[in-house]
């Protein structure tokens, strides 16, 4: 069906980097393939020129989840199932775990990988809001360079990222959040399972008594790309948490989304729901403190 494509199966990262630097034809990295194979079948413009696929499932450097020096490091080719079952993620990154659980079907989660989720920068990538509130950074390598940037910087525009042709995302690093952080991930789809996100957002905060010491808010499928709401975060910092304030914050989120997204065919539905559900999530997340 897709018979003109060559598939390479390098055994380590150096081989991958070598292939990427060789500059032969339209190269593309494949791990789970859940995005690429459907894209190829549907003759999506994003994939149509692909000539060579580099399968990284055998590359140890992009697998595995570990914790060191106050950071959790997730291999780019970790599947959602691996992330979901990982003890470190369960303990330290519950919002990411919740986001991962909502993705696709088990068959998809058994194949699809975390970097695959955001490396194309599709707005409905469910891990993005969770990774953004965790201040995730990503390691990018090419044969000549190695850099680490924040996910926020990496995601430039719809289907556009900072990734260069000869580069690969190797790991996602997340500073271990302080123990008293509270938060949640929200996803709305048209079904209870295997649904493309209509709305996603995540919130993470630290309260001192009733005061917001720190808050991080990120959206997924309600803005053109996943993004942090820094204006909103600045506004909320230091404020007392009460129902009225949470309502004000939710209204401000509506305002921010209009600024970022403008009004679209779906806004008539999404705007009221985002504000309403953001308020609901804030209420349930802060419940213990009120």
């Amino acid at each position: 069906m897709i018979s003109s494509i060559e598939i390479l199966t390098p055994k380590n990262l150096n081989e991958v980097l070598g292939i990427l630097s060789s500059n032969g034809g339209d190269l593309r990295i494949i791990a789970g393939g859940t995005d690429i194979v459907t894209g190829l079948k549907q003759e999506s413009n994003r994939f149509i020129k692909t000539e060579v696929l580099i399968d990284i499932n055998r590359v140890a450097e992009v697998k595995g989840i570990g914790q060191a020096n106050g950071r959790i490091s997730i291999g780019a080719a970790s599947t959602f199932t691996e992330i979901y079952k990982n003890q470190i993620v369960s303990k330290e990154l519950p919002i990411l775990k919740k986001a991962v659980a909502t993705i696709g079907s088990l068959q998809i989660r058994n194949r699809a990988t975390i970097a695959g989720n955001f490396v194309n920068n599709a707005p409905c990538a469910d891990t993005v809001p969770a990774l953004l509130v965790y201040n995730a950074t990503i390691e990018i390598e090419s044969i000549n360079s190695k850099r680490e940037i924040s996910l926020q910087e990496f995601l430039q525009g719809p289907y556009i990222t900072q990734l260069k042709k000869d580069e690969i995302v190797t790991r996602i690093n997340i500073p271990v959040p302080p123990e008293n952080f509270i938060g949640d991930f929200y996803k709305l789809g048209r079904r209870q399972a295997v649904a493309i996100s209509r709305i996603t957002f995540a919130v993470l905060m630290e309260l001192e008594k009733n005061k917001i010491n720190e808050i991080r808010i990120a959206s997924g499928a309600v803005t053109p790309i996943g993004t942090r709401f820094s204006e909103l975060e600045k506004f909320a910092k230091g404020k007392e948490v009460n129902n009225n304030f949470l309502k004000t914050l939710a209204c401000k989120m509506g305002d921010e989304i209009i600024k970022l997204t403008g009004l679209r065919w779906s806004s008539e539905y999404k705007l009221p729901v985002v504000q309403q559900m953001f308020y609901q999530i804030l209420r349930s997340a802060t419940k213990k403190n009120l």
Partner: peptide, 9 residues
Amino acid sequence: NSCLIFAAQ
């Protein structure tokens, strides 16, 4: 899903 996996994989 075997429809999303290439033979080479």
